[in-house]
């Protein structure tokens, strides 16, 4: 490694020095920039984001029509003890954000992550572009880290797309204002907005586990489609197993088990127990499947 260059904060210095010119360690981030641009310019990515943006619109319109008829929304969240946010939407459009996140977190969001993560390495292998990235040379660890960072960026963007779409629709169709927490206390709209942002970040972080799993699957095969299908299949399987009482002992280790704990951020005071467990599980999945992906990808024969 180059000793005569200042080590920039957080910048890993890697790569060979060219015979004549100096190699700037920051150049290593060129790949991340390219990866982000490539991912977010893809038609497929935009289609996934469009589907996610459509969910709050549909929910908002449905609620508006239901209540417009004079009926009242039945209580009960989407599933598994989920919060009863939906009944509050007509009072306050901000609740559409919580409702939409609760509605997309069990399936739509992780499915979109599964598509992006599953395709990350396998898709490049499938197209043959992987070998050219590697002889560029992208470096296997660097490429994997770049792919992981991009998948995380997609988790965040996807969640924010749902939240912002919900906020816009909520503001257009329903009144905004002070809101009541699950514990019954009143908080200002500004604080409610702050909590909504925090919830969006927690929801995005809840997807880290699926992202790591998908990336690992992606290093196992040369078929992007197979990797995507496997990841989404695992997602559905885990969601089903999480409902079976006999598997009680295993369930705390499922990446989706504490997903709906984000609702605890709407309590006063905030109930942190399950939130922390959720983030812990996500960290565990990231560590385990991240290492597995690294071990696999750095030793694998690239013949595609």
């Amino acid at each position: 490694m180059s000793q005569d260059e200042a080590v920039l904060p957080g910048g890993a210095i890697e790569g060979a020095r060219k015979a004549g010119g100096k190699v700037n360690p920051l150049w290593t981030f060129g790949l991340l920039r390219s990866e982000l641009l490539t991912t977010f310019r893809r038609w497929r990515t935009l289609a996934l984001l469009a589907v996610l943006a459509a969910v709050p619109i549909l929910v908002g319109i449905a609620v508006k029509i239901e209540t417009g008829d004079g009926g009242s929304m039945g209580g009960g969240g989407p599933q598994g003890g989920g919060p009863a946010f939906i009944s509050q939407i007509t009072n306050n459009g901000l609740f559409l954000v919580f409702t939409a996140l609760a509605a997309t977190l069990p399936f739509f969001l992780p499915m979109a992550i599964g598509v992006i993560a599953g395709d990350a390495i396998a898709g490049e292998a499938n197209a043959g572009t992987l070998r050219y990235l590697l002889v560029a040379p992208a470096g296997r660890s660097r490429l994997l880290l770049t792919k992981y960072a991009t998948t995380m960026a997609f988790c965040l963007v996807a969640t924010l797309v749902v939240a912002i779409s919900a906020l816009t629709v909520g503001a257009l169709l329903f009144p905004l204002g002070e809101l009541t927490t699950i514990s019954g206390t009143r908080i200002s709209f500004a604080e409610g907005l702050g909590r909504a942002l925090l919830i969006a970040l927690v929801v995005a972080a809840s997807l880290i586990g699926v992202a790591a799993l998908g990336l690992f699957v992606s290093t196992l095969t040369n078929s992007g489609i197979a990797a995507m299908a496997t990841t989404v299949g695992l997602l559905i399987t885990v969601q089903i197993l999480d409902q079976i009482p006999q598997l009680h002992a295993l369930q705390p280790y499922f990446f989706s088990h504490y997903w709906l704990s984000f609702a605890d951020l709407m309590r006063e005071p905030v109930y942190w127990d399950d939130l922390v467990k959720n983030l812990g599980i996500q960290g565990l999945y990231a560590a385990v499947f991240g290492s597995a992906a690294w071990a696999r990808f750095t030793t694998r024969d690239i013949t595609a």
């Binding site: 060219k18 390219s34 310019r41 197209a127 572009t129 990235l133 040379p137 992208a138």
Partner: peptide, 22 residues
Amino acid sequence: ALYGFLSGRDNLLRYDAADPTA
């Protein structure tokens, strides 16, 4: 092997960005 959804120029920009010494 190329990214079909990128232009020829963008393909090259991407491969060049993959080289940390470029």
